[in-house]
Design a protein around this nucleic acid. Structure first.
Lengths: 233, 233
DNA sequence: CGCGAGCTTGACGTTGTTCAACTAGAGTGG
DNA sequence: CCACTCTAGTTGAACAACGTCAAGCTCGCG
């Protein structure tokens, strides 16, 4: 984690969070929030918000990829979702609990802004339109979570891995040819199966020509077939 | 579905939704919402909100038990969660999409109030504190959904059925001895397994004395053991 | 009485986990 | 510069978990 305190890592005038805010509140009001902001850079693997800690901050992910990780009481890791910036995070916790239900961990190097949630909430209580917008954005992860849930509940590993490949391609890396920054073990934690099973399934897809694997690089050759496998389960 | 139009089925002054509302807005404002309200009774099995239909209403469940049901494109039903009143529902969809992501179906006879969402939203935009409260209540289902997701992802059927029994006992029927209004098939759709497997697991728990089954009635004898099975997966 | 829906049980095959062994690459220290 | 270790990836075999199928059972209802 790197903190440059007074120095600004990224330009606040370009910030999407600011854009939302200033649609609904005067610049001076936004300044109150911005003053509580803390620009940070996280390296791959670093914990941004820790499960169980107090929810003192709302988090805006400018750039990079994170995983939402839940560690159960048996010490097993479960990946709830993978998200790439720019996106508002942590609102999930904000409306529920005074502690984080899960950890947010950098999967790639990330640029992040932390906002003091108390200041923000007090402003939001007086500005319903902004709150509505933020709630809409912040709860996006829940929708992803529900569809993951459906995928896990009624599909076997073939279908789940297909779902994950499609999701990564469309929502995280935003291209059909990407460098997989997740390990096989992490994919297993996302798919809810053993890492051996991930390997077997991926190399099966590779042999069948649906995808091409070059080390860490994955190319999706036949998106239709992948979607077909996903549909069948 | 029964609609008495002018007649009032239940007393609005006792309504929890009204209680929330009037904490933050004058009675006259609340009256605007109440005028759009539609008191309805649904019988077991009736669809209250249909998946895919427009989200024109927010739903307040006064009394009864409902299931949130997702039908996938293969025609399979998946139960996202089971909820008993009094509870605010449909907020989930409200903040995402202009159509319902899933159906809400009565599992027991239900007393329900439907509110026009446009009227409500316009009032909410000017009343952040109420909105915050509603968001907190309405998004409760997401938290349940996440924990179901975790349960499904990394537990086998023993653990999942335990989770469901604990959940039903603590959050739906609110007692350790209850009449199961769900069929074995519905439990299977909730747990993500075959209905035969539900039966086998339940009768195993019965033989081991953890629960007692008398037809539709279930008594949880050993909650600790159930929680232990849930923990181990 | 007969019918259908929900429930139950056992046999059997498929799917997925676990375990163990092996390979390759990256980092470390003598 | 090489041996050592650690991590990630890979593969196959044995075994357990789970779904599917088929049959029979009970209960409520027309």
């Amino acid at each position: 984690m790197t903190d440059f305190s007074d120095k600004k890592l990224f330009d606040c005038t370009q910030c999407i969070f600011r854009m939302y805010s200033c649609m609904y509140m005067p610049e001076e009001e936004y300044e109150k929030i911005r003053k509580t902001a803390n620009q940070l850079q996280f390296k791959k693997g670093e914990v941004i918000l820790k499960q169980g800690s107090k929810t003192t901050h709302l988090l805006f992910l400018h750039k990079g990829v994170i995983k939402m990780n839940y560690e159960n009481n048996a010490g097993k890791n479960i990946i709830l979702t993978i998200v790439s910036g720019p996106k508002l995070l942590g609102g999930a916790n904000l409306f529920f609990k005074d502690y984080n239900l899960f950890s947010i961990i950098a999967v790639e190097d990330c640029d992040v802004c932390l906002f003091d949630s108390k200041t923000l909430m007090s402003l939001l209580a007086e500005n319903g339109s902004l709150l509505l917008t933020l709630v809409e954005r912040a709860t996006e992860m829940f929708q992803a979570s529900i569809f993951n849930y459906i995928s896990l509940a009624h599909k076997q590993v073939n279908g789940r891995i297909s779902d994950i490949l499609i999701y990564l391609s469309e929502h995280v890396y935003k291209t059909k040819q990407f460098i997989l920054t997740l390990t096989r073990k992490e994919i297993a934690e996302f798919a809810g199966c053993s890492h051996e099973n991930v390997i077997i399934t991926l190399s099966k897809f590779n042999k069948e020509g649906i995808i091409t694997i070059n080390g860490k690089e994955i190319i999706i050759n036949d998106m239709d077939k992948l979607q077909d496998i996903s549909r069948r389960g």
